[in-house]
Design a protein around this nucleic acid. Structure first.
Lengths: 249, 249
DNA sequence: TTAATAGTGTCTATCAGACATTATTAC
DNA sequence: GTAATAATGTCTGATAGACACTATTAA
């Protein structure tokens, strides 16, 4: 750093710029009872007191954005930040000038995928949090409805070309369990036989553990082979959504 | 709004939160002389005075994020915000606590695609701006090297499944010109015949104008048919990068 | 025994890519 | 004429999806 720069920094006044707050909001998806569910919190104070909203909060002074998102998620669910089965990615940033009545708030939204998590723990601030099936979500506070819709779009397309479906199931899983994830998120029935062959044909998507399930299906059928997530980060070829046939215009 | 909320807003103190500044930075790509080029500005003041950086600046008080990005781009290039051939999309947000030595700065990065634009106009603040081939970009200020790399990745994959390549060419274009865009951005040689057939087979990608070029190619060949962008927003099936064959692990 | 499920086999239409061919133009 | 290019044709291997079939298990 030059002497000039040091002088500049010393005289620099952050207050000269309009006050802005930066928050993170998290769209956390998990699958419970064959339904895609999202973590929501009921706002304990104004604005929009009593409305459901995405979990989130202000970014702390020395905190990275993704760290803040992981912290907010952990505060609501108790899921360890270091949980390797948790996927966290940046979704987008929402900064319309009037999106929060208090002041200019720019929110960086994150998308989280996790296997079935325990019920949320009520934080010390007595906030109520709950996993809610996305089909039952009504109106949300602020622009969180838009953020949730964007997160859902992202999740649906991410299943196509990444192995992220495996983050919704346990360490070891059957092909049928993996298919259930796709069917739940895409809201589409998939052909069991073709799905099976397709998944095994994609290099690095899943790898066999050599074991099979303890029992067959609840309504009969042979015991299924168990797999774990492979080392692929992208799926080639991709698994495309059936309904995507019609070109979006 | 309830009475309680009104009271709350009146007593709300934005200064209670750590000071953060929000900026936008723009990764603006265009194609000049068969090279993918990005718009850079030389920093006129500290920090990193004299270094090249992405164009950008602070978001104004009542300004939307995308509006701010369009404004910053217009200030450097003179390209009208209303230019319909300009594509602008949010790329991502960069907020590492130490990414700017002045203070906590969270930057929302935007990605812009445009047909060959005029040379940048020097702003009243005497900033120097220039279109620079991405292959010749050296070190950039702040974390702008990372942002540029992310923007390049995004641009390359966007060409696969969206018709955005058409934003790099003029209103009317030949298939060969479109192919040149793909070859430039992907840095791959494509098979002319197969590319031609593929582009015409994707519904809504391009539509014929009925006209042909005034002259044949500079080194001979028939006059090519002219096309304009179609109404598709997504390409089905997609044009996949040849080198993507190897699964990324 | 019955029904459901896991996993595999087969067939067909489609598509990407390699390669060839024809027509048209600049020089 | 010669070389380059636009546009189209042909062939092959790979793949998605429809459908069929066998083996295995719960009830």
């Amino acid at each position: 750093m030059t002497v000039n720069e040091a002088e500049f920094l010393a005289s620099y006044d952050p207050r000269a710029y309009p006050p802005v707050a930066v928050t993170v909001d998290v769209v956390a998806f998990t699958i419970r009872q064959d339904a895609l569910t999202v973590l929501l919190v009921r706002r304990a104070g104004p604005p929009s007191e009593g409305m459901w909203a995405l979990p989130g909060g202000f970014v702390r002074e020395w905190e990275d954005l993704s760290t803040a998102a992981a912290r907010e998620l952990a505060e609501e669910t108790g899921v360890a930040t270091a949980n390797r089965r948790l996927h966290l990615e940046q979704l987008g940033t929402y900064g319309a000038p009037d999106r929060d009545p208090r002041m200019r708030v720019v929110s960086v939204a994150y998308l989280a995928f996790a296997p079935d998590l325990p019920d949320p723990v009520s934080g010390s601030d007595a906030r109520v949090a709950a996993w809610t099936p996305v089909g039952e979500v009504d109106r949300l506070a602020f622009d969180h409805g838009t953020i949730l819709a964007d997160g859902l779009d992202r999740a649906r397309s991410k299943l196509e070309y990444t192995p992220l479906a495996t983050t919704f199931v346990g360490e070891e899983f059957t092909i049928a369990e993996l298919r259930a994830v796709y069917e739940t998120v895409w809201d589409e029935q998939l052909h069991a036989g073709n799905f099976h062959r397709k998944v095994l044909s994609v290099p690095g998507f899943v790898e066999s553990t050599g074991a099979v399930t303890e029992r067959g299906g609840s309504r009969g059928g042979p015991r299924a082979k168990l797999y774990r997530a492979g080392d692929a980060r992208l799926l080639h070829p991709a698994l495309l959504m059936p309904s995507k046939e019609e070109t979006v215009r």
